[in-house]
Design a protein around this nucleic acid. Structure first.
Lengths: 195, 195
DNA sequence: GTCTATAGATGGATAGAC
DNA sequence: GTCTATCCATCTATAGAC
C-alpha cells in the first residue's frame, strides 16, 4: 500500500470509531505510521482526507449490499440474507455514524456520499421488493418504497440500540421483528406462475 | 432558573447538536451566560455536567413517549400516534445521538441512562402490543418483543436517513412503511368480544 | 459564588531543511 | 517525499483574588 493509501485507510478506521470531530490529523498519522509533513504533502488537510475516506467506505458498503441483494432467491430470501448477514454490530455503521456529525452533514461534499449510499440502498431494496411483488411472492398492495425505507432504518436504528445496550441483542430483535412483519406479506406462488 | 440549571440546559442543547466530544466547557459557559469559575464551582467538570444533562434528557424522553403510549385507543392507534407525533426530525434524537460517541458508551455512568431509556421504551411498546394482542386487535402470533425493538429502531434509523438526506422524507417513509406492515397484523374485534 | 490568570496538552496547519 | 521546527487557537482544568 502506498503512503496515501495507508493514510486513507487510517482515516476510514478513525472516522468509524471516533467520527469527524473526534479524529485528529495527528491520530491519522500515528495509525498510518506516516509523518506530519508526509501527510500534508499528499492531502491538503483533514477535510480532504475525510472526503477520500468517506467515498471509499460508501463504495464498499454499496458493493457489499449489492452482493446479497443481487444473489439468486426469492425477494424475501435475499432481503433476509442481507439483514441477517454477519455484521460487526457494536461498531455500528461507518456511514450512518457520520450523519450525527454536524461538521459532516453541513459540508455538502462530505454529506453527498452518505446521501447517495442510503438513497441507492433504499432504491435497491425497493426494486427487490417490487420484483417479489410482480412475481406474486409478496402481497399486491405492499408499498415497496416505504417498506424499503423501513428496512434500512431498522438496520441503522438497530445499531443505535445495540450500542446503547452494549449488546447485539436489540439489533437482532429489531431485525427479526421486521422480518416477521415482512413474512406476513408473503404469498404462495403456484406452479404454473413459477413456470 | 438557577445558574446550575442554565448550565445543564446549555449542556443538553450542545450535546444534542454536537455530541460529547464536540461540546467544550467554554461553549457551555458561553451559551449559559456563565463564567468559567462559576461553572467549575457548581460542577466538577464536563463529565459531571454531561451526566446531569443526559439524565434530564432521558427522563424527558420517557415522559413524552409515555404520554402517547398510555393514551386511550387501540394498540395500533397509540403506536401510530407515537410514531407520527411531531418531531424535530433533522435534529435527530438527543439520546440516540450519544450512542455514536465512544467517550459516552465507554463510560458506564453516561451509557446507563441511554440503555435504560431504550430498554424502557422497548418494554413499554411490547406491553402495548401485548395488550392489543390480548384484546384480539392484533394477530395472535405477533412477536411483541421483537416487533417493539423494530419500532424503536425504525425511529432511530429514520433520523439517520433524514440527516443524510437533509430531508424528513426518508424518516416519514420509514415510519409509514412499518405502520403499513403493522396494519396487516390487525384483526377484527367482534361486538361481543368488545363488550 | 463569581472573576481573572494561568497552565499543559492537543488541534490543525505552515515553513523550510534535507 | 519526508522530517523537524514552529505557530496560534482551543481544550480542560486549577489557582487564587474578590
Amino acid at each position: 500500500m502506498t503512503t496515501a493509501d495507508r493514510l486513507v485507510e487510517s482515516t476510514r478506521e478513525l472516522l468509524w470509531e471516533r467520527g469527524y470531530v473526534g479524529t485528529s490529523p495527528k491520530a491519522i498519522q500515528r495509525r498510518a505510521g506516516v509523518g506530519q509533513g508526509s501527510m500534508y504533502h499528499h492531502f491538503a488537510g483533514k477535510a480532504e482526507l475525510a472526503l477520500a475516506a468517506v467515498r471509499a467506505t460508501a463504495e464498499d458498503m454499496r458493493a457489499k449490499a449489492d452482493a446479497q441483494l443481487s444473489a439468486p432467491g426469492t425477494a424475501y430470501e435475499r432481503i433476509s440474507a442481507y439483514l441477517l448477514r454477519e455484521r460487526d454490530v457494536l461498531r455500528g455503521c461507518p456511514i450512518g455514524r457520520l450523519t450525527q456529525d454536524p461538521d459532516v452533514v453541513s459540508d455538502p461534499g462530505l454529506r453527498q456520499p452518505l446521501d447517495e449510499t442510503f438513497a441507492w440502498l433504499r432504491g435497491r431494496l425497493a426494486e427487490v421488493l417490487a420484483e417479489g411483488r410482480a412475481r406474486g411472492e409478496l402481497a399486491e398492495d405492499l408499498d415497496v418504497t416505504t417498506t424499503a425505507a423501513t428496512l434500512v432504518a431498522v438496520l441503522q436504528g438497530g445499531y443505535v440500540l445495540a450500542r446503547s445496550a452494549e449488546s447485539v441483542e436489540p439489533f437482532q430483535h429489531a431485525v427479526r421483528g421486521v422480518l416477521g412483519l415482512l413474512a406476513a406479506q408473503r404469498r404462495d406462488v403456484s406452479d404454473e406462475e413459477r413456470a
